[in-house]
Nucleic acid binder design. Structure first.
Length: 280
DNA sequence: CCCTCTGTTGGATT
DNA sequence: CAATCCAACAGAGG
């Protein structure tokens, strides 16, 4: 469930895992995970993806792993080519030893006595080879300020949240703020006590200020330096305050948590804490 | 067994 | 501009 905090956790893990040893070998169970361009579609697969991946990764030592929003840029010492990685909906990187990859593993990098698996059941994630010199633009293009590293202050947020769109839709727009998705947008709104359906141009200054404060608080709290990151819907307990908790009591006020549809996705919120008519 | 619904992503189409 | 559909696949429920 990769939004900015999980992608940042992934970035740190890739750095840790590859800092001190080169990638010895590469296996590509699903060549279509290599794409010509950033895309959710396996049909945008790179021709000869397996060969390209082998040439790119074999023997490579990491120079840097950077992140803007949900995009990762990975570069290598003494190599002109890097990769842009997007985890899509179900993508994640795992480190394993003495174990065989499951059917969802799309790419395997052998490092030291371990393997790094790019697992992606739904195949919306991608690895896009490109010149390292092109990565900074590929990471930043079309994206607003990063939710973790560069969160907007209340003045900038006011300028970013324009128009009549519901605030939840705007928060999920990567061109407004980079890194918030369906889950953390809902969490931010709950923290800030803002109703998800309020139009951006109807937000009070106080609500904007609360949102500006809530964004970095929310996303920084969920960055994790563990090798195994906890994901919702992967068996563990739900780590979120509001997401996925329809019908449960709000942990702040006890009211039953509601669910509505917005932009084809579910939005969870507390009808008492997050009032549509709030003008505070 | 089958069918329907839901899901963290982003982009295209209407 | 906004609502809708779509991609690809798994899991849950009826």
């Amino acid at each position: 469930m990769p939004e900015a905090p999980e992608v940042e956790s992934c970035r740190r893990a890739l750095l840790r895992w590859t800092r001190d040893a080169p990638i010895r070998a590469v296996r590509v169970p699903d060549p279509a995970c290599l794409r010509r361009v950033p895309s959710t579609l396996p049909s945008d697969a790179l021709p000869d993806g397996a060969k390209v991946a082998a040439a790119l990764f074999t023997g490579a030592r990491t120079k840097d792993v950077r992140r803007v929003g949900k995009r990762i840029g990975w570069t290598f010492r003494d190599r002109p080519q890097g990769v842009l990685v997007h985890l899509g909906m179900t993508g994640r990187w795992m480190r394993r030893r003495d174990e065989s990859p499951n059917a969802k593993v799309r790419l395997v990098l052998e490092v030291g006595d371990a393997e790094l698996w790019f697992e992606d059941g739904r195949r919306f994630g991608c690895v896009v080879p490109m010149p390292a010199a092109d990565l900074p633009d590929a990471l930043a293009s079309g994206q607003g300020p990063d939710a973790i590293d560069d969160p907007p202050d209340k003045e900038l947020l006011r300028a970013l949240l324009r128009g009549r769109r519901p605030v939840k839709i705007a928060l999920m727009d990567q061109a407004v703020i980079a890194g918030l998705g369906n889950i953390h947008s809902a969490e931010v709104l709950w923290r800030a006590k803002v109703h998800p359906e309020i139009a951006c141009d109807a937000l009070s200054d106080a609500a904007i200020a609360r949102l500006a404060a809530a964004i970095p608080e929310q996303v920084r709290r969920y960055v994790d330096d563990a090798d195994e990151i906890e994901y919702v819907n992967l068996g563990g307990p739900n780590p979120f305050a509001i997401y996925g908790r329809e019908g449960e009591p709000c942990s702040r006020c006890g009211e039953g948590i509601a669910r509505i549809g917005q932009g084809g996705r579910s939005t969870f919120f507390c009808p008492r804490c997050q009032r549509a008519d709030d003008r505070a």
